[in-house]
């Protein structure tokens, strides 16, 4: 059995994800690739729209209303002859602003509240946990109405509503992970080395919850896009002069009987981008998660590879560390 010829040819070795750069790890998965391409497209068209759109946004021509797709207007025109493609390209600007704003707010709020509700002393912590649990029940729409009813709709309403509504959710998801990380041996070890609270948070706690945070924030980005469409339709989002995908959809829906295709484009763009953001988040999580990056995950393959490489019997292959396995198992079942 030890003759070299009988050993199965070594299968191409699974590359060690620790050594390859992050972007390549994301690119390896189909979802990550799709997400990266769409997100890049949105960013490029947002930047492009600042200097150029196929037609000027306010260029109207009522004789050219509701044109179907054609060479001069690939996606057709709206009621007063404005070019649909130009408005969608310009709308990506609003998308970028809303998504970045919401994600930033939700991230800061989520991490801040998450850390406080995990680490504050006694009663203070318990009341914060209860408060977060209550606020989670408040739908984004109701927060938006609370802001828009007295002050009127605006992009800020969308960003604040999504940021606050999703931020408390992020805090609730992060809290158990932060608690677990804060009580772990490596934080204790760091403390024994004399590190301060801020340093321990920055170097040990936040990186541990990083993958979870990334997934949460990618969902916030998706939620921001979906909410923008709903809120703009109800009149709490961007004012009429601001190009946005939600506005394109809301305006087209009045004329669904006349120009059904004009409803398709903004909806497609929104759905494709939400999907991209979600898939990109999943790929980023897989690439970031230190537990997924260690080659423990393939119990069947590992001994074989080890045997092929060293010529030893499979039984002597080092068993995967039980601690790592346990962690990987619990990581999937975050409440």
């Amino acid at each position: 059995m030890t003759a070299a010829g009988l050993v199965r040819p070594a299968e191409p070795e699974e590359p060690d994800l620790r050594r390859i750069p992050l972007w390549r790890a994301v690119w390896r998965s189909g979802g990550g690739r799709y997400g990266a391409v769409i997100i890049a497209l949105v960013l490029i068209s947002a930047a492009l729209s600042l200097v150029w759109t196929p037609y000027a946004l306010q260029q109207t021509d009522t004789s050219q209303g509701w044109l179907g797709p054609s060479v001069p207007h690939p996606l057709g025109t709206d009621l007063i002859g404005r070019d649909t493609l130009s408005w969608l390209i310009a709308g990506s600007r609003t998308t970028v602003v809303i998504v970045l704003g919401s994600v930033l707010l939700a991230g800061v709020l989520g991490v801040g509240l998450g850390i406080l509700s995990a680490l504050l002393p006694g009663r203070l912590r318990e009341s914060l946990v209860v408060a977060v649990d209550i606020l989670v029940a408040l739908p984004v729409l109701l927060i938006a109405i609370l802001l828009a009813a007295p002050f009127g709709g605006s992009l800020a309403v969308v960003v604040l509503a999504v940021g606050i509504g999703a931020g408390v959710n992020v805090a609730r998801v992060l809290r158990p992970e932060i608690t677990r990380a804060a009580q772990s041996d490596f934080v204790l070890a760091s403390r024994a080395c004399g590190s301060g609270t801020m340093r321990r948070l920055r170097d040990h706690v936040i990186p541990t919850v990083g993958p979870l945070l990334v997934v949460q924030l990618s969902q916030v980005a998706g939620l921001a896009l979906l909410s923008e469409a709903g809120l703009t339709f109800l009149g709490y989002g961007a004012p009429a002069s601001t190009p946005s995908w939600g506005r394109s959809l809301a305006e087209a829906q009045h004329f669904i009987g006349v120009a059904p295709l004009s409803v398709m484009w903004p909806g497609l763009v929104i759905a494709a981008t939400v999907l991209a953001v979600n898939l990109f988040g999943d790929a980023l999580r897989d690439a970031l998660d230190p537990r997924r990056r260690t080659p423990v995950a393939a119990p069947g393959a590992a001994p074989q590879d080890a045997a092929a490489l060293s010529g030893q019997r499979p039984a002597t292959a080092p068993p995967p560390s039980p601690a790592l396995e346990r962690d990987a198992a619990t990581a999937g079942s975050a409440p």
Binding site: G222, A229, G230, L249
Partner: peptide, 24 residues
């Protein structure tokens, strides 16, 4: 499912109108 979950409710309603709606 991933695709459907990415659809805004508003658009889902509009698509259903285009599919099954009376008149349209």
């Amino acid at each position: 499912t991933q695709g459907v979950a990415a659809v805004p409710v508003l658009w889902a309603g509009l698509l259903l109108i285009l599919l099954l709606g009376k008149g349209v």
